[in-house]
Design a protein around this nucleic acid. Structure first.
Lengths: 200, 200
DNA sequence: CCACATCTGTAGTGAACACTACATATTTGG
DNA sequence: CCAAATATGTAGTGTTCACTACAGATGTGG
């Protein structure tokens, strides 16, 4: 039995293009016509490979979070809680204003609110944002155990805080804030973490 | 010449219902069918009164920001920069988890990214968020002049920071964060403003 | 070279969308 | 009571959407 005609496009390259469309227009705002054009394929190829529009989004999110998690590993490798927050937020300021990508964050731009039939999309994005928050929380738990954070500090609250600031910066970036403006926000935000550090 | 048949519905009541639909589903996710059903009217009445879907959104935003500005006046009436930040963020934590409304903030849920033909919507929302940021900035400028904030403090950056945290909290609320979780975020966030205060 | 499996491009499909034509109903001014 | 003006409900309009049937192309195993 033969193995059939091989695929003529590269799935990961196509996903990168789809990611950009979702990033710029959101899940509901992105049309199959825009997606297929950006990916350089026709609808049947898209559906054969990714199932449907939501499957394509999930695949794009998988790719996005995979790259992002590599970066997050570098972030939590910083020596102190303050350094972690600074590396995270300054990195966010730069990444969210990188002209190579649409402004903001795919995990926010993808779709915070959706219509009937797509209620699953906001959940999907939230779950992936929560992964990063968990990583931060674990790192802050360690920081407190190491005496880097005060005993009174709440690692979960700190992680939620840093995550919230990241999201807020993403929305600002998507509405036109430039890199310097975001860095100023990050700079202020880090001071709250510093206030929870043992040697403030 | 007669003045015609009078309108049978109350425009402001109808707007409140429309607001809720946009809030929950976003601009693109909200359908005219859902809007008219919630408003208790038929499409021709909607179009006669508000022009089109985008006109309805703008009218709903006008009403939303009108109520919100009243609250913001109370916020900036707080005696110190720290108290302003606390009142703002704690109030946000409560308002964004008020069961009387959909979770989160209409100015975010309304549509951060939109498809072709609705590019104007994210701008419209961003402009209204910027109004609140300007109000905060002016208040922080005064705080610095009064010696409440350090000379080295940047009022514009602080305002942008508080605004970013608010937005981030809104996204968290919309994805299920409860009131207590948001209050913890607010509590941490206020400490950054405190660090910029003269008597920290 | 043949049977089979998978991909590709063309050209649609039904459904849902924002929006509206039109006839009818309800008001005011004379 | 009539004419002008505006609102309402019914029943659509054309367009766009996500998705797919189908025929032909391109590969593998025997």
């Amino acid at each position: 039995m033969g193995m059939g005609r091989p695929r003529e496009f590269d799935a990961e390259t196509a996903l990168d293009q789809a990611m950009e469309v979702f990033w710029r227009h959101g899940y509901e705002g992105a049309t199959i016509a825009q997606l297929t054009e950006a990916m350089g394929i026709n609808p049947p190829s898209l559906y054969a490979c990714f199932g449907n529009k939501e499957g394509l989004l999930k695949a794009a999110l998988d790719r996005y979070t995979k790259l992002r998690n590599i970066w997050m590993d570098e972030v939590v490798a910083a020596p102190t809680a303050r350094a972690v927050a600074e590396r995270m937020l300054m990195g966010i300021a730069d990444k969210q204003t990188d002209p190579a990508n649409p402004p903001g964050c795919l995990l926010v731009q993808g779709g915070i609110a959706c219509g009937t039939g797509s209620e699953n999309v906001p959940f999907e994005l939230a779950a992936r944002r929560a992964q990063n928050e968990d990583q931060l929380r674990d790192r802050f738990i360690r920081a407190r155990a190491e005496g880097d954070l005060k005993e009174s500090a709440d690692p979960a609250a700190l992680a939620r805080y840093v995550s919230a600031v990241s999201v807020g910066m993403g929305v600002m970036a998507s509405s036109g804030a430039d890199r310097e403006a975001l860095r100023q926000v990050a700079d202020v935000a880090v001071q709250a973490v510093e206030a929870q550090s043992a040697r403030g």
